[in-house]
Amino acid sequence: MTNPIVKKIELSDGRVITIETGKLAKQADGSVTVRMNNTVLLATVCAAKDATPGVDFMPLQVEYREKFASFGRFPGGFLKREGRPSDYEILISRLVDRALRPLFPDDYHAEVFVNIILFSSDGEDMPDALAGLAASAALAVSDIPFNGPISEVRVARIDGEFVINPTFKQLENADIDIIVGATVDNILMVEGEMSEVSEAEMLEAIKFAHEEIKRQCRVLMELSECCGKTVKREYCHEENDEELRKAVWDRCYQKAYDVARSQNPNKHERTEAFEAILEEFLESIPEDEREEKAPLVKRYYFEVEKEAMRRCILDEGKRLDGR
């Protein structure tokens, strides 16, 4: 017998978003169904227990699919199966990816797959606005390390009034149409279009969206507590040498900063200058240890180079190519 956990979010116009977990896709690390009226999304997330050897990035994959059956249809003609994702589905997948990816720990490198499927559509409510909420909810009820939650909402300005997650019909009369992704504290992503509006009006729309996102994130925190998933799994995907890291920073940072500060407009010469700093440090390592330590040195030097360029731009207003 299943005992699903249900949380509800009421929008300002009276519509209710229902989040339910514990009933479907129970073999996934996390799964939820998100419903608004007759629009239903199923979001699942699965993660490998360990990282693939040699992987030093975040192998995250997000897929958003709208099934033909969600609108009472099925593929016809020569092909009787669902085809490749449409451009629209790919764009929604990217919107979700852009909000989720920065919030995974920097040293977490296990493969993560987020799958969002539209199971039912009533043709009125827009399902893409719920995709980010569904993905974040699936992560919230899992034990996958994630510095969330996040949520995404669509904001439209219709007849001078801001509306959260407007219907298809309402959106026809909007002069602002944006999707905003954020955590409780920070804006992560903004995507959309506007009809000649001022910056002040755009900022007002983003602030309006953020207030709604804050409410939704608090509901996701409550959902995570109800599921007992506030403590995430332990992992160790990186082996670090703190003494080596300190040596790289101490001996390379100022040199990298000087190269960034020189504002050489020739990209190839700049690249060679940065590489020369790395090669110089590698040459200082005993030959019998060099091959073993080279991957760590390159990773630490990448951090040094990135920070040097960043500080040069923020502190002195100097970009690499002199612009």
Rank of each mutant, 00 (worst) to 15 (best):
E89Q: 03
Y88H: 02
F57K: 07
V96N: 01
T52M: 13
F104W: 06
Y64C: 12
D106A: 15
R101F: 02
A69V: 08
M58N: 14
T44C: 15
C46P: 04
N37S: 12
L100P: 04
Y108Q: 07
V96P: 00
S70D: 02
F68R: 07
P53K: 04
V45I: 14
A25G: 08
R81F: 09
R35P: 10
R94W: 00
G30I: 09
V40R: 03
F71K: 02
R94P: 02
R84E: 10
S70P: 02
G54C: 11
P102V: 04
N37V: 14
L60C: 04
S86P: 01
R81Q: 11
K23P: 09
K26F: 10
L60E: 06
G77D: 08
E66N: 03
K49N: 15
Y88T: 02
G77A: 07
F74E: 07
A51I: 07
R81V: 06
D106I: 03
K49H: 15
L60F: 01
V45L: 13
R81G: 03
K67R: 14
N38Y: 09
Q27F: 10
R73Q: 07
L100G: 07
Y108T: 05
R98W: 01
A28F: 13
A43V: 09
G30M: 11
E89N: 01
G77P: 12
L41S: 02
Q61D: 13
R73A: 14
D87Q: 00
S86R: 00
P53T: 03
G76S: 05
L41R: 06
R84H: 03
R35C: 13
G77H: 05
L100E: 10
T39H: 05
R94D: 01
A47D: 13
F68M: 10
V45Q: 09
L100A: 08
D56N: 14
L41T: 06
F74G: 04
L95E: 03
